Simulated scan of single mutants.
Amino acid sequence: MRNLKYSLEYFCSPIWIEEDNENPIYENIEIDILEIDHYLKDEINTLNNIYQSKYNDNYPPEPYSFSIAEEIIFISRVITSSKILIELLKNQYNVIFDTFYWEQRLTHLINELENK
């Protein structure tokens, strides 16, 4: 089974497919190629657009910031979309998503919000 990676990166689609099992190079593809529910496609495209809007042309290493509430909601949506993507594609792809990173970031932000 081929790997499919869900990963937000600037100037790219968030969907990456492993070229083949012997070659761990990932090709960036458009979400529309996948046979998944159009609501999920729309959600992933919306999340990607939000992410892309945070790119800072003046100083790329430091993207524009979210408010705490905005980032908590954004991350919650990314995590939820990943779970749905994994479930819908489980018979076609091994979906790779950095759940640990996203959940840790979410926990950190929630703690930060609670301690204000």
Score class of each variant (00 low, 15 high):
residue 105 R to I: 05
residue 44 I to N: 02
residue 39 Y to A: 15
residue 55 Y to N: 08
residue 106 L to I: 00
residue 82 S to Y: 07
residue 35 E to A: 10
residue 51 Y to W: 14
residue 112 E to G: 06
residue 25 I to N: 08
residue 55 Y to D: 10
residue 65 S to A: 14
residue 26 Y to R: 00
residue 33 I to A: 14
residue 30 E to M: 06
residue 29 I to V: 15
residue 93 Y to R: 07
residue 33 I to P: 08
residue 92 Q to R: 14
residue 93 Y to P: 11
residue 99 T to H: 04
residue 64 Y to F: 15
residue 45 N to S: 09
residue 12 C to W: 05
residue 51 Y to M: 01
residue 46 T to Q: 14
residue 97 F to L: 11
residue 9 E to V: 02
residue 40 L to T: 06
residue 110 I to M: 01
residue 76 S to T: 14
residue 114 E to S: 01
residue 66 F to D: 14
residue 113 L to S: 11
residue 2 R to D: 11
residue 86 I to H: 03
residue 31 I to C: 09
residue 37 D to L: 13
residue 3 N to A: 09
residue 105 R to A: 05
residue 69 A to Q: 12
residue 47 L to V: 03
residue 28 N to Y: 04
residue 89 L to Q: 09
residue 97 F to D: 03
residue 11 F to H: 13
residue 11 F to P: 03
residue 1 M to D: 10
residue 24 P to H: 00
residue 90 K to T: 08
residue 19 E to F: 08
residue 101 Y to D: 15
residue 70 E to Q: 14
residue 89 L to R: 06
residue 110 I to H: 03
residue 29 I to K: 09
residue 91 N to F: 02
residue 80 T to G: 07
residue 85 L to Q: 04
residue 55 Y to A: 10
residue 58 N to Q: 11
residue 54 K to I: 06
residue 88 L to M: 15
residue 15 I to G: 01
residue 22 E to P: 05
residue 36 I to E: 10
residue 2 R to V: 10
